[in-house]
Write a protein that binds this DNA or RNA. Structure first.
Lengths: 334, 334
DNA sequence: CTGAAAGCGCTTACAG
DNA sequence: CTGAAAGCGCTTACAG
């Protein structure tokens, strides 16, 4: 492998000069500069980012830990983070916790060992406060993504409450009173927020608690059982709101299996649903998250934090759009 | 930040000993070992992977460059690579070329500068031979993923020809003769293989060339126009095969818009389609790629190559499964 | 069983 | 306008 020593020798200069030509860190006589450039070319020298990073104690790399890289929304966030980072010459180290707090903790350690300049973390369901302990005690910047908390860090996610409230109001305005929320694992902050706001919005609409149906469960089998119970009960819901893509799929399967027509027999809406919700029949009412933008924003918050470690943490909530389609009947008037 | 020097001082040993305790590289007296461990604990020392990598000229990291991180299939491959790498204590550096050969070339340079132990590359459409030049001239291992070529590298992708042939035969056996292949950008190796085999299978089935319809186009708008032309022609196809998720979405939109019923008016099958093809109505016949496994296999090939640079390159083709559903009418007998 | 020291490939004051 | 040299935090022969 070629190093700066070889380049310097060939160009007849010191390695200082090679370094300065490479990084533009001080003026170098034009003729000398050209000799160095030519030597770099001839030796096909490539800078060693590791040695450079060690000397500068800055790696120009960031770490991203997602809780489920398979989910379409997370795939988009990853893209957003990568794109913003790449634009700034920053390399992305990616880890997937697969909703396992232990894997999450190990990923944090690995990234810290690799001296990333900062970390973006979408926490795993059930990840406790310990996960963040390492950040409090040292100064690697941290940005919380998607799944937010009360901790004093920069954070970016979506506004979960508004869309749920609007969805409830829309359904109620069409005469629905008995509504089922497929909430899933409410240890996940986003799902917790959606469930909480559902309860509030239903109460605000004057719906009796006995008509506020919810399936809360961590395991897919439990979720499925909950959905079946609700659909086959003596007084089944007339509308369903699913809180994520997997939950929507689970609910749709059972709805289709029972031969229920949407929206005649049952109205259906989903948070963060399918990539091609308009190809379903009927087309599905969907709360669409700006996932890519969540990613770009996370990367921007992190690079800002890296250059200014003392600023107040900021919490950004991006606003999803609700795409009303046939599965919830006629669109709202506005 | 704590370094080994501080730990050594506290434990009253040399940094050699600390290093050996950390890595288990030579025997250390039990009492001494305990003292070192305690010192590490007390100082909350964390090994510096950068310094370690520089000394060992091995980073325990690999690079992955995908052509489109947003595509569900690629998201799965990324998951597969990450999981296998993490299991072996290897960190993943991720880059997205977004089908841009220039970005791909830059990503290769960046990863090489970071001295990754090897690179997995899913080439961008239109990426030429130059992209691989850097690998031929030096010894960073390379594995080609998904989009294969004739170059002498380890490769892993799926068997594209068999499924297309089977699909054609199935449709022909049901009386279809005029079949439209939505092939997309045939500069992409996978799409080229699918198109090529389509032509062969149709010819083998005795279908006249004039009934072998194909939409070949790089831009989405062109693709859409091609689909419309085909569907609105005097002799429209009675069956459609789409070669990717985006192509399937484009075709389905136009089919639905024209009010065509599947499979009565037109049969439909797609390669590598939607995550929830069973929720569509009618359910969609889909060639499902083992994308996650493509990722894990790529990572395995790479780590093998890293430990043995001289072995013959191996090319792995994983076999997709065809899920026959209502959109192509009655299932085949076998 | 353990330590002193060279060196991985850079950046960056310091000096002229 | 340029160079000599220290040092980033480790690993690993070499020596005892």
């Amino acid at each position: 492998m070629t190093t700066m020593v070889k380049v310097a020798k060939l160009a007849g200069v010191s390695i200082s000069t090679v370094s300065h030509v490479l990084n533009g860190t001080r003026h170098v006589g034009e003729e000398t500069r050209q000799r160095v450039l030519k030597a770099i070319e001839e030796t096909s020298y490539r800078q060693d980012a590791l040695a450079r990073a060690m000397r500068r104690s800055r790696t120009d790399s960031i770490g991203l830990i997602v809780s489920d890289g398979g989910e379409p929304a997370f795939a988009e966030m990853i893209r957003g983070v990568e794109e913003t980072a790449a634009h700034q010459g920053i390399t992305l180290l990616l880890a997937n916790s697969a909703e396992d707090p232990d894997r999450e903790a190990r990923a944090v350690q690995t990234l810290l060992e690799r001296r990333v300049d900062g970390i973006i973390l979408a926490r795993a369901a059930g990840s406790g406060a310990e996960a963040l302990a390492d950040f409090a005690s040292q100064d690697t910047p941290l940005v919380l993504m998607d799944r937010l908390s009360d901790d004093p860090y920069d954070q970016v996610g979506v506004e979960n409450r508004g869309p749920i409230r609007e969805l409830v109001e829309h359904l109620v305005s069409q005469g629905h009173r008995r509504i089922l929320l497929v909430a899933g694992d409410t240890r996940v902050a986003t799902l917790q927020e959606r469930h909480d706001e559902f309860t509030k919005a239903m109460a605000a609409a004057g719906i009796a608690p006995s008509d506020q149906l919810a399936v809360i469960a961590a395991a897919p089998a439990e979720t499925d059982a909950g959905i079946q119970d609700a659909l086959s009960s003596a007084r089944p819901p007339t509308a369903v709101i699913a809180c994520s893509t997997v939950l929507a799929a689970a609910a749709l399967r059972r709805i289709q299996q029972r031969g229920l027509r949407m929206p005649e027999d049952i109205a259906f809406a989903t948070f963060d649903g399918f990539a091609y919700a308009d190809l379903f029949q009927p087309q599905l009412t969907t709360v669409r998250q700006p996932a890519f933008q969540v990613g770009t924003t996370a990367a921007e918050l992190l690079t800002k934090r890296i250059t200014d470690k003392l600023a107040e943490p900021s919490v950004v909530r991006l606003v999803p759009t609700i795409e009303y389609r046939a599965s919830t009947g006629p669109k709202p008037a506005f």
